[in-house]
Computed example of a mutant assay.
Amino acid sequence: MQTVSEQMHLDSLDGALGFLEGKLSRARAAPGTAVPACPGWTVADLYGHLGTVHRWISEILELAGTGQRPGPRSDGSRPPDADPFDFFAASAREMFRKLCAADPATPSWTFGPPPRTVRFWLRRQNLEHLIHAEDLAQALRLPAPELSAQMALDGADEVLGMLVPQRIRAGSVPAPSPALAFESAGRRWLIGDGEPVAELSSEPVPLFHGLWGRSRLLESATVAGPVRGFTEFLATDYVP
């Protein structure tokens, strides 16, 4: 259940983009710096990846309302000789302007459940950029943009209420057995079938970051019942 308004997502995305833009000079000076949560990635790879995301989202928004679907996104779509930082800078605000101009209710291809509208992309792009802003902050050892509990809770809901169940239904990952329960700020999610034998309780921000592998969730959360199921869950590719 999405609990954050479209405008709140846009305002938050604006801040995340501003953080990434504001650190361009520092990132250019250390392009080979490793991104801790993304093995094999450097800061240059991070910016290059986001540039491909921006162009893909712009294409999706251009097709919104037409019934057409875009081609698949690929990090390989960036020209090999393109500077990743310039590639990012050339696309970030163009995507943001298109998101701001789009009617959230317009039908659009998404990889989420119905109703499939532009609204999905406002949420998805904000949460994606918040995670990658955290990546940059960890790589450059800087304070990350402030993340509210409400926004983090919405991010956790996207993972536990949409992404993980969808991947289980698609057969991309197995359902945990026995089921697992997650709780944060009065919200509860059940992953798997049947009664859970263990429940993890966490504050919203560490839950959001931990589900995306940006923090060690089991070190900050409280687990009632066997911890093994959560250890296995967090070690599996439940998020794309």
Rank of each mutant, 00 (worst) to 15 (best):
M1R: 11
M1D: 13
T3Y: 02
E6S: 14
Q7E: 15
H9A: 05
L10H: 05
S12H: 07
L13F: 02
A16L: 02
A16V: 01
F19T: 02
F19Q: 08
L20A: 03
L20H: 06
G22N: 07
K23L: 11
L24C: 13
S25I: 14
A27V: 08
R28I: 07
P31D: 11
T33M: 13
P36R: 07
A37Y: 09
W41C: 06
V43I: 12
A44C: 11
Y47F: 13
H49W: 05
L50N: 05
L50C: 10
V53D: 01
W56N: 02
I57W: 03
S58G: 13
I60S: 01
I60F: 00
A64M: 08
P70K: 00
P72V: 06
R73C: 08
D75M: 14
R78F: 12
P79W: 10
P80V: 10
D81M: 08
D86C: 09
D86W: 04
A89V: 08
A90D: 15
A92W: 01
E94I: 12
E94Q: 11
M95Y: 00
F96M: 10
C100Y: 00
A101V: 12
D103V: 04
D103A: 10
S108K: 00
W109Y: 13
G112T: 03
P114E: 14
P114G: 02
R119K: 14
R119P: 00
F120Q: 00
F120A: 01
L122H: 15
R124D: 00
L127W: 03
L127V: 01
E128T: 07
L130P: 00
H132R: 09
A133M: 06
A133I: 04
Q138F: 09
A139M: 07
P145V: 12
S148I: 13
A149Y: 02
A149F: 04
Q150N: 11
M151W: 01
M151Q: 09
G155S: 08
A156Q: 03
L160G: 02
G161T: 03
P165A: 11
P165I: 05
R167C: 06
I168A: 10
V173Y: 12
P174C: 13
A175E: 11
P176G: 09
F182P: 05
E183K: 14
G186N: 10
W189D: 05
G192M: 02
G192Y: 04
D193S: 14
A198F: 12
L207K: 06
L207F: 03
G213F: 03
S215R: 14
L217F: 06
E219A: 15
S220W: 10
A224S: 15
A224P: 01
P226D: 15
G229P: 09
L234K: 13
L234M: 12
L234I: 06
A235N: 13
T236N: 13
V239I: 14
V239F: 09
